[in-house]
């Protein structure tokens, strides 16, 4: 497994208070084969408690095995100006599990990992 201190040098970790829910109106946009992906939309990776058992994370809403996450994130970051990824983990997930996920993200070309946290006492950000 990767050494933790090396990981801290390689990864710039930001802790952000980010709503992990993607909300909005259901709009079906017209399709064009050559259109560019919406680059502002961030990439979310969620590490559920079940990761400890099945090594599967969520990319957006899709279940993706840990072995495939580097390739998937590399695809998602293609043509995006920002190479940042938001990662949220269940509070019960071990530190080792989070480091494993971040290690894979790094090999997928992620520059910065944003750690998503909930605000205290159930308060919501504006």
């Amino acid at each position: 497994m990767p050494l933790v201190d090396v990981m801290l040098v390689l990864l710039i970790i930001f802790m952000v208070s980010a709503p992990m829910m993607q909300q909005g109106f259901g709009v079906r946009l017209p399709q064009a084969r050559r259109s560019q992906p919406i680059s502002a939309e961030p990439v979310y990776v969620t590490v559920p408690l079940s990761f400890m058992r099945d090594q599967v994370v969520l990319l957006g809403k899709q279940r993706v095995g840990i072995n495939f996450i580097a390739e998937r994130v590399a695809q998602e970051l293609k043509d995006r100006p920002s190479r940042d990824v938001y990662v949220g983990g269940d509070g019960q997930v071990t530190y080792q599990a989070m480091v494993t996920v971040m290690d894979r993200l790094k090999s997928g070309g992620v520059d910065r990992v944003m750690l998503a946290l909930a605000p205290p006492d159930g308060r919501q950000d504006p």
Binding site: Q62, R63, V64, N67, F68, E71, A74, Q75
Partner: peptide
């Protein structure tokens, strides 16, 4: 958009009638 060869190597090659579609779906 080509899936990288190192990425594809994560999934064992199989004949067309025995593809692990779930894995290919997960890798995108």
């Amino acid at each position: 958009q080509m899936i990288s060869q190192s990425g594809a190597a994560q999934i064992p090659s199989a004949p067309a009638d025995a593809l692990n579609y779930d894995s290919w779906n997960q890798i995108g």
